[in-house]
Design a protein around this nucleic acid. Structure first.
Lengths: 244, 244
DNA sequence: TAGTGGTCTAGACCACCAC
DNA sequence: TGGTGGTCTAGACCACTAG
């Protein structure tokens, strides 16, 4: 076998091993990892090589390091999830914290388009095609602002429709109960006329121009874990994003 | 004087020095920097410390490294600028390359809001408040899709209204002629009703829902270099972005 | 005081490129 | 063949944390 085709730097191999363990839930959220020297000895590399892999994971917000204490699995708190992935801001730029109310919850089969968006067909033949659809209203300063439908594949979130209560930011639940750590979201935005049936929920007139966002949320293992669609009035706020 | 308050790691000092030189145009776009060892000797640090600073600049797309050849200043080509900062995509996800037509060009005073957005007041008292406003139509597949107004402060872009021709992606011009390297853009998106005077330019009906984006473009020195506003129909495409 | 991560150095070896 | 960046190691010293 040729080595050149398979060659991976040691730090990359260490990185992959760590990702694998984190994906498998080997270390729980907020848990401390072994020290750099301990990991280095276990994997048979130098401490500097482990450090390089750890720094990469820190850059991806998967780990956090605290000088003098240790290296920890990032915890998706309500606040950090909001701050990181919730992109609506006041026109001035101030952060907004929405409150959230679930208005419907249904277990059903995914449609063809949803199967594609959730990449359910690529998993395996005879894949579980059931999903839970959660419909929520998110309010800002007490006023309804965002109408959102979230799709959760049952293949990933077993019996999530049996949860007693859904938190404001679902990602904390995903991490704690289902070993799903969202590390990336992919948004697609369009301006559309507000559908009449949604207008009621937002106290807006039908056909008002609203922002429609579709979001695929990516797990640490690189696969789509959740897909959602939202309608948002941008009369009082903006979708704010920085590209580097 | 206390050292602790001013303490900066060596690699950070090297980084700052390099940023300063790049901002000043000490190295031109596409130019090769000295080798790691040469920089290390010049700055009195080890090669590993220089490497850490260089890698940071590579991560920020400011430098590119080619194994066996050297380290170069990133060049803002038409293609790379488009791919990096132009976020409109077909619903399927394929890249779009717009063509661009300038329909108006005016030199005038900035309004109060524009002064704030361009941060002209923070530069110095008696700052130059003149701007050039370029109005452009960007077409995709030959059909007008985006109506855009770009504001260029004369304090940064001297006599830019005298340019014979403006390229499709302005950032290449900024880098080549004005020593401005855009390293970040901050977008704010809203859904609005298409104003009547703009509807004509886009062959759309007035009041159609369109995406309105406001963009501040940030120079390598961290300051706003350009501010623009655009109206875009999203009937056939989406604004696509990934958050990590 | 002991253990952790943070910085910095020096040096070895490899892969790639150009002459 | 010589110069460049890419990887890896080993070790020193510092700063922070906790008992």
């Amino acid at each position: 076998m040729s080595l050149s085709t398979n060659f991976q730097p040691l730090y990359k191999q260490v990185y992959d091993t760590l990702i694998e363990r984190l994906s498998a839930g080997y270390w729980k959220p907020a848990a401390a990892l072994p020290s750099e020297f301990a990991l280095a000895e276990e994997m048979g590399v130098s401490q500097g090589t482990v450090r390089k892999a750890l720094n990469q994971l820190v850059a991806e917000n998967i780990l956090v390091r605290r000088q003098g204490k240790g290296t920890y699995v990032s915890e998706h708190t309500q606040e950090s999830s909001m701050f990181r992935f919730f992109r609506y801001r006041e026109a001035g730029g101030d952060d907004l914290i929405p409150s959230t109310e679930v208005i419907a919850l249904e277990r059903r089969e995914a449609t063809a388009r949803e199967i594609e968006k959730l990449e359910l067909n690529t998993r395996h033949k005879n894949a579980e095609l059931g999903v839970v659809e959660v419909t929520r209203i998110r309010s800002i300063n007490g006023k309804p602002a965002i109408f959102e439908r979230v799709l959760q594949p049952l293949a990933i979130f077993q019996d999530i429709d049996k949860e007693r209560e859904l938190p404001n930011s679902l990602y904390t639940l995903y991490q704690e109960k289902y070993n799903i750590s969202i590390v990336e979201v992919r948004d697609e935005l369009q301006a559309v006329s507000l559908p009449a049936d949604i207008a009621d929920h937002l106290n807006l007139t039908a056909n008002a121009p609203v922002l429609m966002t579709e979001r695929a949320s990516i797990n640490i293992d690189g696969r789509v874990a959740e897909w959602s669609q939202a309608y948002c009035s941008t009369d009082n706020f903006v979708y704010s994003v920085s590209l580097k």
